[in-house]
Design a protein around this nucleic acid. Structure first.
Lengths: 245, 245
DNA sequence: GGGAGGAATATTGACGGACAATCCGTCAGC
DNA sequence: GCTGACGGATTGTCCGTCAATATTCCTCCC
C-alpha cells in the first residue's frame, strides 16, 4: 500500500515518477511510525512519549510531533491533552463502524476496477488470487497477510480512483491487527478464498454490479468474524484500556 | 459540523460533555485555518508561508506547522517539498472521485439514519428540510449553505456512525467551494429541494433502502452540476494553477 | 531589447534549549 | 485508609540557529 501513501505527496501530478526527491526526515518518521503501528509492534493503548520516539527515530522533537499530527489525523494515534500520543485502540462498536465504511468503499473500488481496469491489471488480480487459493491452511499468518495486502494494492490501483484508494487504505490500516487475527481464525481461510474468487470472477466478466456485491459480501463476512473475536476478547479482558463508552 | 470535529478529540468517550478542557493553541489554529479555507477566504492554490500564518494567528512556528500537518492529512492543504503549504485545489477528475465517495458515504449515513435515529432526530431533519423548502430562489447563497450544513449536521449525528460522519465531513469540507457554486446555480434549487424531500420521506417511512437510494441520487445530481461547472471553468481559464495531470 | 547567468534574499526543514502548566506517583499526615 | 502536599516527568509553546533549497532581481553579454 506504499503506492497509495506515496500518491498523497503530490496532488495529481503527471506521475513520471522519475523525480529523485530526498525524502524529508519527517516523512521517514511518519512512515516508520505508521508501519510500526500497523505491524502491531506497539500494543494498542501504549503510550508513546516524545522522548521515546525521538530516540527511536533519531529525530528532533519538532519532527516527531509533526509526524504524530499526521497519524493523529489518520486515527492511528490518539493524542490525549497534556498526556501525549497513544497508539489507537478499537472498541467492538468502532470496529463495526469501520467495517461498515470499508464495505461500501471496497465495493466502490471493486465496481470501479470492473469498469476501468486494464486487461493486464485483471490478470494481475487473478494471479494474486491464485496465490491466495494455493496457500494452504499451513501458511503462516504473515504470508496470508502479505498476499491480501498485494490483492488490495492491485485493486486500489486498478479502480482508478485515488480518493477511494486513500480512504480505503486508511480503513485497512486502522483495523490491521483485527484483520491479522481474523485471517488466522481456524476454518476461515476457505471462506475467504471463496469470497475473493467471487470478486475476481465478477471482475473478469466485467460485471460491475456483481463485483460490488461480491466485495460487500466479503467485507460483511470478515466483519462478522472480526467483531465476534473482538467481543470475546473484551468480555475476557474487560473493556481494555479502560475507555469504552 | 463542529460536533464531528470535536468528537475526534476524545476517542469514544462516554460524552457527558462536562469536561472543561482548555483548547490548546494548536487546536485553535487548526480550526481557524480549516474554517478559513472552507469558507473560501483563501484562494485555492494560494501559498501560505509559515510567517504569514504565524502573524495571522499570533502563534509560533511549531504550532502553525503542526496544525498544517493535520490539514495536510485532510487534504485541505497540499505541502510541496521545500516550497511549503498551499491551499488545496480541485481538478474536475478529482472532484468526480470525491463525489463518487461522497455518494456511498452519504447513502450509508442516510440508511443508518433511517434505521437508528430517534423520533426527535427525524423531526429535526424534517424541520431543516422545511427551512430549505421555504427558502425561495431569492435567498442568498450563505443562507442556503447554512441550511444544508445544518441538514448534514443532523444527518451525521443521527446515523449513529461517527466513522461515516468523520469521513463524510471531510468530503464535504474538501469540496465546500464547489457546493457553494452549484447550490447557487440558477434553476437548481427546486431540484435540490425535491431530492432532499425524497430523503426525508424515506427516512420518515423508516425505509433504509429508499433513504440509501435517495441519498445516492441526490449526490449524483449535485455531482453532475458541480463537475459541469468545474469543467467549464477549466476550459475558460485553462487548467488552473498549472498543475493538472 | 531580450535572454543567460549569477548574486542576494526569502523560505523551508531541522535542531536544540528553555520555560510554564499539567499530570503522575509517592509519601507524610490525619 | 483516605487526604493532601511534594517532586519528577511530560507536554505545550516559544525562541534562536543553521544548512539547504527557491525565488527574485540584477547584471552582463549577445
Amino acid at each position: 500500500m506504499d503506492s497509495v501513501a506515496a500518491d498523497k505527496l503530490e496532488q495529481d501530478k503527471g506521475d513520471q515518477g522519475l523525480r529523485v526527491t530526498p525524502q524529508p526526515m519527517r516523512r521517514q518518521v511518519e512512515e516508520g511510525l505508521r508501519a510500526a503501528i500497523i505491524a502491531g509492534r506497539f500494543a494498542p493503548g501504549q503510550h508513546l512519549p516524545d522522548r521515546l520516539l525521538c530516540e527511536l527515530f533519531g529525530a528532533s522533537r519538532s519532527v516527531v510531533r509533526e509526524a504524530v499530527r499526521l497519524l493523529e489525523a489518520e486515527s492511528l494515534i490518539v493524542v490525549l491533552p497534556n498526556r501525549g500520543p497513544f497508539v489507537a485502540w478499537l472498541s467492538s462498536s468502532e470496529a463495526a463502524q469501520i467495517y461498515e465504511v470499508r464495505g461500501v468503499l471496497e465495493a466502490l473500488a471493486g465496481e470501479g476496477f470492473a469498469i476501468r481496469a486494464t486487461d493486464a491489471e485483471r490478470a494481475e488480480l487473478r494471479a494474486v488470487y491464485e496465490r491466495l487459493a494455493a496457500a494452504g491452511e499451513a501458511s503462516d499468518r504473515a504470508e496470508l497477510l502479505a498476499i491480501k495486502r498485494d490483492f488490495y494494492a492491485v485493486l486500489l490501483r486498478g479502480c482508478r480512483n485515488p480518493m477511494v484508494a486513500r480512504m480505503l487504505d486508511q480503513m485497512l490500516n486502522r483495523n490491521s491487527q483485527l484483520r491479522a487475527t481474523s485471517l488466522s481464525e481456524p476454518g476461515r481461510l476457505p471462506h475467504t478464498v471463496a469470497e475473493i474468487r467471487r470478486v475476481v470472477q465478477a471482475i473478469e466478466h466485467r460485471d460491475p454490479e456483481g463485483a460490488w456485491e461480491a466485495c460487500r459480501h466479503h467485507v460483511k463476512r470478515a466483519a462478522a468474524v472480526a467483531i465476534r473475536i473482538l467481543r470475546e476478547r473484551e468480555e475476557r479482558d474487560g473493556t481494555p484500556y479502560g475507555r469504552e463508552a
